[in-house]
Every structure is written in C-alpha cells, then in structure tokens.
Design a protein around this nucleic acid. Structure first.
Lengths: 142, 142
DNA sequence: CGATATTATCTCGCTGAGCGAGATAATATC
DNA sequence: GATATTATCTCGCTCAGCGAGATAATATCG
C-alpha cells in the first residue's frame, strides 16, 4: 500500500521532469512523448509513419501533422516519403534528437541502474515481478 | 536496464489510463491530477487553497481558477472562504469525487497490492528500495 | 488609527494544441 | 480504366492555459 503510493509518486515526478524538459527545449509534453515513441521504434527496428505515431499518441491526423511539423521545425525529425508506398511518410529522428533524449533519460537511467547493480538475483527478480504486475494492472486488455 | 524500461512503461500506461478516465468523465488530465492532489491533501490533513493547488499543478492563477471552476461545475469540488483569512479559498472534494477516485484507483491498487501480499520480507524491501531510488533519481533536489 | 504594502483570487483578452470535416494524392480492387 | 481504400495534409473552430491587471482582504508602519 505504501509501496503503491511510492510508485505513484515516481510516475508523477517523472511526468513533471518530462514537462520541465519539454519547456526547457521549446516543446510540449506531447512532443517529448512523440520523440520517445520514435526512439523506441528506431531501437525496435519498426518503421515509424505519421499515422503510426498519431495512434501511439492518441491524436487525430490533424493533431499528428502539427506534432510532426513542430518537431521538424525544431530539427528533431525528418520526413521521408516511403519509396515502396508513396502515400506513407516515414519519420526519422535526427542525431540531435537522439542526443537530447540521452541528455534527459541518461542520468535518470544511470542512477537507477546503479542501484540495481547492488541487488542480488532474488531481489532484482522481485522488482521485475512487481513491475510486471503493476504494468499488467495498469494496462488495458493485456 | 530492462527493469528501467519496464518502469517507464508503467508510467506511460498509467498516464494513458488517467487521460482515458478523464475523458470518460468529461474532464481533462489536469483536472484528474487536481483531484489527486486534493485527495492527497485531505488524507494528509493539510488544507488545500486555490493557490496551493495551482502550485502543485504548475499553473498560474488564471489557469488555476479555470480548473477549480470546471471541477466545481462538475460537482467534484466546493469552494469555501477561509473564515480565518477571508482572502483564501479552501477547496474540499465532494463525496462524489472521492467515489470517482476510488473507482479509478481502487482496482489498480488492489491488483498491485495483491501481488505484494505474496512477497516475503526481503522481496518487499527490495521493491521499496528500488522505488525509493527511482523516486530519488527522478525528483529534483529532494 | 489611517495610508500603504502585501497576499490570494479572479477577470479579460490572447495564443496555440488538438479536434472534426473534408481535400488531396497514392495504391488496391474490380 | 473507373472506383474504393488508405495515408496524410489543410482549414476553421474550441477551449486550456498564459500574461497583465483588477479586486478584496489582511499586515505593517508612521
């Protein structure tokens, strides 16, 4: 119960940092979330189209175009028409955006990973099990 | 590292549920966050004023008034002038809002607590230590 | 005690994120 | 080749949140 509140605090603070980071770089929370989605897609090897991004963010097509326009204007993003299906627009993050993402997540990740390094097998397993359960509880139709 | 991604997924999904809940009840994410703050204050026995709420949400006074107006209009909130300092406006959540909060957080909390019940001492301790560390990492100057 | 400063909240007008509706262009189907 | 479908973009609008300043209550100081 107290642990649940702790988890909630973490999510709240994380949201605040994200908003703060967005403001500091002339973006909005949505833009940051978009970048995260794109970086995830990049890492997973999926190709990210405008429609896909909109679905991830829960925006309609007009709103999606706005996000992409803003990120493109800031130089975090490039549009490329897909040569295989020329209706589609492929989105690729620029090195600048990658760097920005690292500057944001890097320290947070490092600090957190550092703690985990001092955990033994059964302890990390417990953390993993807990977070999986929480994820399950919070995710709709798993 | 994989655990960090898991934690991030939890925060993302949690945000989505929150937005979904807001939409379902004719509110915005900010309104839900406001309700959470007010319920927290209630539980902690702090009295919540308009200014305090605005600070919690990172809104200016105009925006804060809007949030309060919306929540009042929906019957989730009541304004009372503080009799001790009649410049201040005290905010109190209605039973309806409490019920709404419970209907949202209740199941999530229950599911998560249920998992924890099957953890032994050292495992819950590990989870607590991890979340504290994550909270520390994500919180600015604690 | 009255004049002035400070604090808490609200009002007004504006900017811009995101929406609905529909336009445009490329591809798939018959 | 005509038509349907899919992916994205454009236009006009609504409303959350901002800056500036009004209002009202309290605190301070001569």
């Amino acid at each position: 119960m107290e642990i649940v509140h702790l988890l909630r605090k973490v999510t709240v603070e994380f949201g605040l940092r994200q908003a703060e980071f967005a403001a500091r770089h002339g973006m909005h929370s949505t833009d940051v979330r978009a970048l995260i989605c794109l970086l995830d897609a990049e890492r997973a090897g999926t190709d990210a189209t405008a429609g896909w991004l909109g679905a991830q963010l829960g925006l309609n097509s007009a709103g999606t175009t706005s996000v992409i326009d803003r990120l493109e204007r800031l130089g975090h993003l490039e549009r490329t028409r897909d040569p295989r299906d020329r209706r589609r627009v492929l989105l690729s993050v620029t090195p600048r955006a990658v760097e920005l993402g690292r500057s944001f997540f890097g320290p947070l990740i490092d600090d957190t990973v550092a703690v985990l390094r001092e955990f033994d097998e059964s302890e990390t397993a417990a953390v993993r099990r807990f977070l999986s359960a929480a994820h399950q509880a919070v995710t709709i139709v798993p």
